[in-house]
Design a protein around this nucleic acid. Sequence first.
DNA 1: GAGATCCTAGAACGATCGTACGAGAAACGA
DNA 2: TCGTTTCTCGTACGATCGTTCTAGGATCTC
Lengths: 198, 198
Amino acid sequence: MTGRPVNHQRRADLLDAAVEYAIEHGFADLSWRPVARALGVSTTTLVHHFGTKEQMLEAILGRLRERAFAATSDAVGDQPDLAAAARAVWTRTSDPLQWAEFRLFFAVYGRALQAPRQFAEFLDRVVADWMSALVDAQGPDTDAATATRTATLVIATIRGLLLDLLATGDQDRVQDAAESFLATLEHRPPPQSGTQPR
Amino acid sequence: MTGRPVNHQRRADLLDAAVEYAIEHGFADLSWRPVARALGVSTTTLVHHFGTKEQMLEAILGRLRERAFAATSDAVGDQPDLAAAARAVWTRTSDPLQWAEFRLFFAVYGRALQAPRQFAEFLDRVVADWMSALVDAQGPDTDAATATRTATLVIATIRGLLLDLLATGDQDRVQDAAESFLATLEHRPPPQSGTQPR
DNA sequence: GAGATCCTAGAACGATCGTACGAGAAACGA
DNA sequence: TCGTTTCTCGTACGATCGTTCTAGGATCTC
């Protein structure tokens, strides 16, 4: 006797709705009851699908990281080189329509830094996911050390600029600095060994 | 009849102790009673000196920003040019002894991003303080636009690298990227008087 | 149909939350 | 010393917290 099958979609829908709630109402004081009210369900339903509050927070963390990464990784894959990839990432992340989501992203990031045990996976992947994408974007002819160094710098600069943008809202100044940074990437000589990059 | 004078030092001492507590125990679930226990006072004493919990959080925010800025601004003032100043800032901020404090810094930063009304002053000054210091470090011969652009980029890169370092703990990779960035600053031509913004 | 499992809800538990109140000790000017 | 203000404390209030319990439909296999 198998009984009623588990509805995985239901949990996914609730999770997405919870992420939307967190984007709008903040991550700091998230608790069962207000989320349940906003989602039109009972707290018991949330508990049933997520287990404990800690587990719901982890689920929100993970989903948010997925969304943030997905929003840029597509763009990166289509670009011919690192400079174009970096520009594509910056264009997408600096879009004011995404500000609320990235505000939550950094709120989560900060919280994860202070609870590294609980949010270990987030901390691991919040850098590693983008790293591998940006290393790949540099092609197979860039030596590993240079590729890693450059990818690290691109991630750091974009996130730092985004932190500035979200804190000050000063689009002109931050965009100016971003252009300057992207220009250095574009004027950087492509990796030429004996052979041309394929 | 003046009565007993206000003891400002007392509040300052309690605030510093509260910041230390937040560095150690995190910022997310800060509440009167645990802080009071750790400080060896009653919750009433904290309420007396800080008013409401919101006000205590704002006080912690402000004090933390002061400390973070003070730790670097001295160093910046003594340096002959921007490259040296940036290196000095990076050297101080990347010191593992400061990691716990910067973890709190970014936790606070993220929280402030999601409550911009409440923490408006933090968000204003978290960029502006460093900006003015790094613009000054470029001397009076650098034109304003270039100085602003460069300072924005230095702040963003250092903070982005620090985010990476705190999340991954990968000192070698991050330090390598930081060296690469600092090198570009050092090889940048200093502002020639008479000619040449680039 | 019967049996099993999932989904949802309401009620209730003890714990902790922020805050207010009253009172006693301490430190000042008069 | 007296009046006033600060500082500190214990206590208590109502609200909200995360979680558990109980139970009634819903949806599957047999």
